[in-house]
Design a protein around this nucleic acid. Sequence first.
RNA 1: GUGGGUGUAGCUCAGUUGGUUAGAGUGCCAGGUUGUGGCCCUGGAGGCCGAGAGUUCGAGUCUCUUCACCCACC
Length: 374
Amino acid sequence: MAKPFEFELLHVCKQTGARRGRLHTPHGVIETPIYMPVGTQASVKTMSPDELKDCGAQIILSNTYHLHLRPGEELVRKAGGLHEFMHWDRPILTDSGGFQVFSLADLRKLTDAGVEFRSHLDGSKQFISPEISIGIQEALGSDIAMQFDECSPYPCDYTRARDAMYRTLRWLERCMKAKSRPDQALFGIVQGAFYSDLRIECAKEMAKLDLPGFGIGGLSVGEPKEVMYEMLEKMMPFMPEGKPRYLMGVGSPDCLIEGVLRGIDMFDCVLATRVARNGTVFTHDGRLVVRNAKYAEDFSPLDADCDCYACKNFTRAYIRHLFKAGEILALRLNSIHNIWFLTHMMDEIRAAIENDCLLDWANEFYARHGRGNW
RNA sequence: GUGGGUGUAGCUCAGUUGGUUAGAGUGCCAGGUUGUGGCCCUGGAGGCCGAGAGUUCGAGUCUCUUCACCCACC
């Protein structure tokens, strides 16, 4: 029997060095590399838990910041925890709220103590510290909690990036001290903006800590993809080999592939569900904006090579009609398809790693639509 | 038949005492979206201002004629 949060490194692709692993959690096993759909407010927008399972989702994300503001973690605790509350019996990972403070809250004051900011919901003054973030996440009862971190913007000058990186390290220690639930894992988050020396130092410091996994934060914040890939290559040798590496907030199909090729084990991203709700789907031939007029009389599925519920039963013309008519089913079908597309793409990637042929698989994947225009 | 009202973008309308290249919303078309503030953001196309004549340096705007539609009265 595996220990809680044990990460088994099952195989390393001889062709690429990509990793095939297995992460154990109280709510089940996660096969890696994996894409995790995002359900910020205890819901992957427009999708029911059953539909998520049908799409092959093994684990979903939820969010400390949003659930703290509404409905509040105490309510979730009374409901029996997040799993019970949202009727999801597979693993859940909660983001700490650090990124939300960086990306959407009206940031008031950032000190070593924590962050004081205004709620985006009602403007009320709020305060989150590493201890408070852990407290919220323990009340929510997620399987994996993320440390409260400071995410640097892009671009970011060296001094600010260095300060954010060291603060993130200090906050990680406080998160570890505040942590009390043995049935919840805590991941650190490597920061350091786009300075490889900061990234490497951060990774080295975190590697000294006995943690079940590590996030890589502060990437995919507006920089060119090549810049992100280069940063991953430089820092990856310093990430602990026996622990899962979670590239936060990534991404598009090509970014997932490139991430796996560089040693990433876990990804999450809102892109798939967000673009879905705005009329775009991923297909084996690239992105398809199904609301475009050219699909008005196209009675083929979104993606001919897809077995998802939307592709098996509905046409582009119908989904375009639903979209133009403002019907909610359009958002749902697009979301179902995009989640299916990424989870099954990762299935193929895992198989390719096991067969030591991920590079061949990637080249084949790119052959249809190209490498850079996703 | 008489009196009144309305005609401006596909649709609903704004347009000042007459004054640059006639606007908005919506719809249409096309991009965008990367640890989610769920119908979003950005851009584009689209007008002989019902038609004709007149006044004026200049008319969507003023005058006359005419056409269409609406309302009231007979």
